[in-house]
């Protein structure tokens, strides 16, 4: 177990999540991709804490914030999907491109 091994795991999870977020049509599947990307942040944060700065708890606090962000992201994402579904019967990203610039 080294810092590099943990960060490689984080990089792999991040890339898989990015692929999902970019390629999925369904908005809820897109959110699964985002969750995987935050998952990678959790691994990287924990590894940075353990291997670089274990004396202070800042790394642990960062992981705690990332876990919270993940839960909030999911709650708001589902609320937006539900609102979109109610208003327009839309659940795929291609039909929700109103803000495309």
């Amino acid at each position: 177990m080294t810092l590099q091994a943990f960060l490689t795991l984080a990089a792999a999870l991040f890339a898989v999540g990015l692929y999902g977020a970019l390629s999925q049509q369904s908005i809820v599947m897109l959110m699964m991709g985002l969750e995987l990307m935050i998952n990678a942040v959790l691994v990287a944060g924990a590894a940075f804490w353990f291997y670089l700065a274990p004396a202070s708890a800042d790394g642990q606090v960062l992981v705690l914030v990332a876990v919270t962000v993940m839960a909030l992201e999911m709650a708001m994402g589902f609320a937006v999907v539900t609102a979109l579904m109610r208003a327009r019967d839309v659940d795929v990203t291609d039909d929700a491109g109103d803000l495309k610039g």
């Binding site: 692929y19 390629s23 990203t93």
Partner: peptide, 14 residues
């Protein structure tokens, strides 16, 4: 297929 832009997504994430 639940996917769109599969090639682009693969290239970017790779």
């Amino acid at each position: 297929s639940m996917l769109h832009n599969r090639r682009g997504a693969l290239i970017i994430s790779g």
